[in-house]
Simulated assay, not measured.
Amino acid sequence: MRVLITGGAGFIGSHLAEACLERGDEVYIIDDLSTGSLDNIRALQNDDRFKNRLFVHIDTILNHNMMLELTGICDIVFHMAAAVGVRYILDNPLKSIKINVEGTEKVLSLCAKFRKKVLIASSSEVYGKHLHAPLVETDNIIYGPTSKFRWSYAASKLMDEFTALAYYRNRGLQVMIARLFNTVGPRQTGAYGMVIPRFVDQALKNKPLTVYGDGTQTRTFTYVKDVVRALTGLMDANDTAGEVFNVGGTEEITILDLARKIIRETGSASACELIPYEKAFAADFEDMQRRVPSIDKIRKAIGFEPKTGLDAILRHVINYHMSVTG
């Protein structure tokens, strides 16, 4: 199988590339390295087992000729490329909207042209400001005003979903959508606002763990290898096209309790420091108070269950950070 992974040098994309190579696929990666890194795939490029099956192109998905060639030669497409991270979105709002909306439409158009099966990576952000849990794929969407640029990312990913489903209904494109809930694991950076790598880095340096807001907001976290199993399972299934699936963990925790847990797990001398949102971000920032998925739909579709609990996730991330920092 020839597999195209957009954003394949990113955190999740690199793990997905590794899994596809391990099962014998030929993997083509396109990534502009805006948030991805060649370091994420260096080991794959240097692995003799993969040298004739891994092809890396440093380019934007907005390059029509490059995407035309890659989509044409591949059998399936995992569209992982996107502007990611709260910090990156707020700092680059126009670029984020353009790459998410225009880039996804280009991928869908080319997949429809060549009749290629495609998975679109979406985000739990699309649910917006819900307070209830668990979140179900058919829930209504609740956003803040357009003056709050926090919601531009959510709205762009929602438009990606609408566009994908339109291609399914009007063009018969075999496309499925995975809404990812806080994927975590080795290779993830905290530079763009991801909370666990940021907390772990601060704890290992005995610096204060900066908790935004009052810390009562809750999240669940999913280990990246579990997410990869879900993505490949959805792609391999015969009856997932035209559907949206939550992909997430089930252990809900407040961000303040998460910080305290990481301090304990690392044996750090750090303390927790509450930072008001208006100090941490621009004045147009809003947060989601609660984000917990229902995974009943994906469980019924492909038998997916997250295998890695939060404690094990934290150990993996802590060990990774210790290994790369010495």
Results as ranks from 00 to 15, higher is better:
residue 2 R to Y: 10
residue 2 R to V: 07
residue 4 L to N: 03
residue 8 G to P: 07
residue 11 F to Q: 06
residue 12 I to E: 02
residue 16 L to F: 04
residue 17 A to E: 02
residue 21 L to G: 13
residue 22 E to N: 14
residue 23 R to A: 07
residue 23 R to C: 11
residue 28 Y to H: 12
residue 29 I to V: 13
residue 30 I to C: 12
residue 34 S to W: 08
residue 34 S to E: 11
residue 35 T to Q: 00
residue 37 S to H: 05
residue 38 L to I: 10
residue 42 R to Y: 09
residue 49 R to P: 05
residue 49 R to H: 07
residue 53 R to S: 15
residue 53 R to Q: 14
residue 57 H to C: 06
residue 60 T to F: 01
residue 64 H to N: 12
residue 65 N to D: 14
residue 68 L to P: 00
residue 70 L to Y: 01
residue 73 I to D: 01
residue 73 I to R: 04
residue 75 D to N: 13
residue 77 V to F: 05
residue 87 R to N: 13
residue 91 D to L: 11
residue 97 I to C: 10
residue 99 I to F: 06
residue 101 V to F: 07
residue 105 E to S: 14
residue 108 L to A: 05
residue 109 S to P: 08
residue 110 L to V: 08
residue 111 C to G: 05
residue 112 A to K: 05
residue 112 A to P: 07
residue 113 K to E: 15
residue 113 K to Q: 14
residue 113 K to S: 10
residue 118 V to T: 13
residue 120 I to N: 05
residue 121 A to Q: 04
residue 122 S to T: 02
residue 122 S to V: 01
residue 123 S to I: 00
residue 124 S to G: 14
residue 125 E to P: 00
residue 129 K to Q: 13
residue 129 K to L: 15
residue 130 H to Q: 10
residue 131 L to K: 12
residue 134 P to S: 05
residue 136 V to D: 12
residue 137 E to V: 08
residue 143 Y to P: 04
residue 144 G to T: 06
residue 146 T to A: 12
residue 148 K to R: 14
residue 148 K to N: 14
residue 150 R to C: 11
residue 159 M to A: 15
residue 161 E to A: 04
residue 163 T to W: 01
residue 164 A to G: 11
residue 175 V to Q: 09
residue 178 A to M: 00
residue 181 F to P: 03
residue 182 N to D: 11
residue 185 G to W: 04
residue 186 P to Y: 02
residue 186 P to N: 08
residue 187 R to C: 10
residue 187 R to Q: 10
residue 191 A to K: 13
residue 196 I to T: 06
residue 196 I to N: 04
residue 199 F to T: 03
residue 202 Q to K: 09
residue 204 L to K: 10
residue 207 K to E: 14
residue 207 K to R: 13
residue 210 T to S: 15
residue 211 V to S: 01
residue 217 Q to R: 08
residue 221 F to L: 06
residue 222 T to F: 14
residue 226 D to R: 00
residue 227 V to K: 02
residue 229 R to F: 12
residue 233 G to T: 11
residue 235 M to I: 15
residue 240 T to Y: 03
residue 244 V to T: 12
residue 253 I to T: 09
residue 253 I to L: 07
residue 254 T to G: 08
residue 258 L to A: 02
residue 259 A to P: 03
residue 263 I to V: 06
residue 265 E to W: 01
residue 275 I to H: 05
residue 277 Y to S: 09
residue 281 F to R: 01
residue 282 A to W: 15
residue 283 A to K: 14
residue 286 E to V: 12
residue 288 M to E: 15
residue 293 P to G: 05
residue 293 P to W: 02
residue 294 S to F: 09
residue 295 I to M: 11
residue 297 K to E: 03
residue 297 K to R: 14
residue 298 I to K: 09
residue 298 I to P: 12
residue 301 A to Y: 00
residue 304 F to A: 05
residue 305 E to S: 10
residue 305 E to P: 09
residue 305 E to Y: 12
residue 308 T to F: 05
residue 309 G to C: 06
residue 309 G to Q: 01
residue 310 L to Q: 07
residue 313 I to R: 04
residue 314 L to N: 05
residue 314 L to P: 09
residue 314 L to H: 03
residue 319 N to Q: 13
residue 320 Y to L: 08
residue 321 H to F: 11
residue 325 T to Y: 03
residue 325 T to R: 15
